[in-house]
Nucleic acid binder design. Structure first.
Length: 488
RNA sequence: GGUCUCGUGGCCGAGGGGCUAGGCAGAGGUCUGCAAAACCUCGUACAGCGGUUCGAAUCCGCUCGAGACCUCCA
């Protein structure tokens, strides 16, 4: 079952293809990571969880995966691709911090959020600012190949020239002639030959603080350069998978293809995988619409649109219940449904631990396992995996209730299925109860029961309760106002 | 305006020419001191209109509606 071909939907061909890595058992995957100028929101969780699922599954079926996910800390501009302020630099100016302080702060917070979601760390997490040399080198190669031009200390990609030999727009379906008509003409773009040309290197103006020396003067790299440079640096000139959000298809990924092809003479990426968006009230949740809810807000319930707090695992499960290429609509109702479904699955797992085998099985457990692999092999169809796992939960509960039985081999298989898929591949974890809340609640409950006993003048029982708690290190103190407690 | 998606029962979501997922919510039942959990049963959904076909939610066309990208966004 693991030997069945894995089929993935390649955005480049718009169809499902057999996944055949270049150098099995090794495979490489590059995914566009966050620009660290703010807290991660639910939209950021989608690619993180989706590609975590893919990373986990590839490893599960035996690949040695090198997973590269970058941190964008320079070059990502606001407003338009060539003349906005750098997002990081802007934040630094507003907060009166060094840009790298902003980067460190939000990178740390991003990592914390990803850990909470049980998203595995990538194998390599390169930063754009740490790869200026590689980017300059790649720009030089593009220039040498004749697909870029220098103007006044900046370097631009020559899309028209490139399009004469290669297919610009092959990933996103854009047509160069139409781009000319449809691309907005923006201010201060007179340096470019064509409006659709994009910056590889930008000259730094006087007040620009994030700047590096280059053959073309002091400046900084264009946003698209980092991924081309770092992807090929760590995964080779040709590598298997490149992922990211669908909103990056154009221009970001299209530009990446053009850059790599111009510099190397061939494309770098074999399979392009794109996750869809999370919507809120039918619209994409994103920075620009200012309709996003951060992960921390979800975890704390601290947002007007949230009826309550949602645990990281509820969020993860919510995301996995939809296929990664479908839009997923946020609502409190949907989130609460996910929360309850997750609880049902986890409770079944606990029940599974105390099941004892019988002589016959009434349910087809091997078929269940097969269904899980079939679903994953069909472009990572996690919702179908989850449906099968719920069938597993049904079997567990029925056996537990004595409505059916399961033989020894099938019981062992059920353990394997849950361990492999629930924890290993879907990456779900049991919710940890908040220990402090739990202790507080328990002690308060005991104190209130003891009060009833005391009111009934049953001091023998009330003293017994106090002594037993004291043995655990919990000291009860009775006073006129009532009973308080503390840990000794 | 261009390119491209998508419209599935109260909600979320798979599937994708005949075998009609799953979760949540709801109804009934079993169990039960009560409750919870669990199990069983139930609703018979595919935007509309045509067409192809023995047969369409699934293919084709049109209409309506929603969204994404075309500018930074995961």
């Amino acid at each position: 079952m693991k030997d069945q071909p894995l089929v993935v939907f390649n955005t480049l061909t718009r169809r499902k293809e057999d996944f055949r890595p270049l150098h099995p058992p090794f495979t490489g995957m590059y995914v566009c990571g966050p620009t660290v100028y703010g807290d991660a929101h639910l939209g950021h969780a989608r690619p993180a969880v989706s590609f975590d699922l893919i990373f986990r599954y590839l490893k599960h079926i035996g690949y040695k995966v090198r997973y590269v996910r970058n941190i964008t800390d320079v070059g990502h501009l606001e407003n338009d691709a060539d003349d906005g302020e750098d997002k990081i630099a802007k934040k630094a100016r507003l907060e009166q911090l060094e840009p790298m302080e902003v980067v460190q702060y939000f990178t740390d917070r991003y990592h914390r959020n990803m850990d909470q979601l049980n998203v595995l760390r990538p194998s390599i997490e390169p930063r754009a600012s740490g790869h200026i040399i590689e980017q300059i080198e790649m720009i030089r190669r593009i220039l040498n190949a004749g697909y870029a031009y220098v103007v006044n200390g900046s370097v631009y990609f020559d899309v028209e020239k490139y399009a004469q030999k290669y297919h610009y727009g092959k990933l996103s379906g854009r047509v160069v002639d139409e781009l000319l008509v449809n691309t907005r003409t923006l201010e201060k773009q007179e340096e470019k030959h064509n409006s659709f040309d994009f910056a590889l290197w930008k000259k730094a103006s006087g007040e620009h603080i994030m700047r590096w020396p280059s053959p073309w003067g002091e400046g900084f790299p264009g946003w698209h350069m980092e991924c081309s440079a770092m992807g090929t640096k760590y995964l080779g000139d040709t590598f298997d998978i490149h992922g990211g959000g669908m909103d990056l298809l154009f221009p970001h990924h299209e530009a990446e293809i053009a850059q790599s092809t111009a510099a190397l003479g061939h494309e770098s990426v074999r399979y392009w995988l794109h996750n869809n968006m999370i919507t809120i009230n039918g619209q994409k949740m994103g920075k620009s619409l200012n309709n996003f809810i951060t992960l921390n807000e979800f975890f704390q319930g601290a947002h007007p649109l949230l009826e309550k707090a949602y645990s990281p695992m509820a969020i993860r499960f919510f995301i996995l219940q939809a296929h990664y290429r479908s839009t997923l609509d946020f609502s409190n109702e949907a989130l609460q449904a996910a929360e309850k479904g997750l609880k049902r699955l986890m409770t079944a797992y606990v029940t599974l631990q105390r099941l004892t085998p019988g002589t016959v099985s009434h349910s087809d457990v091997p078929a269940l396992r097969q269904a899980c692999y079939d679903a994953m092999n069909d472009d990572f169809n996690s919702p179908v995996v989850i449906a099968s796992l719920f069938e597993g939960a049904r079997i567990i509960n029925s056996v537990n209730d004595g409505h059916e039985s399961i033989n020894k081999a099938d019981l062992a298989l059920l353990h394997t299925i849950f361990n492999d898929f629930v924890f290993g591949i879907l990456g779900l974890t049991g919710e940890e109860l908040n220990q402090k809340q739990l202790v507080d609640g328990l002690v308060e409950t005991i104190i209130s029961l003891r009060r009833q006993v005391r009111e009934a003048k049953d001091f023998k029982t009330s003293d017994l309760i106090r002594d037993e708690l004291r043995r655990l290190g919990i000291l009860l103190k009775d006073s006129r106002e009532g009973t308080t407690w503390e840990l000794e």
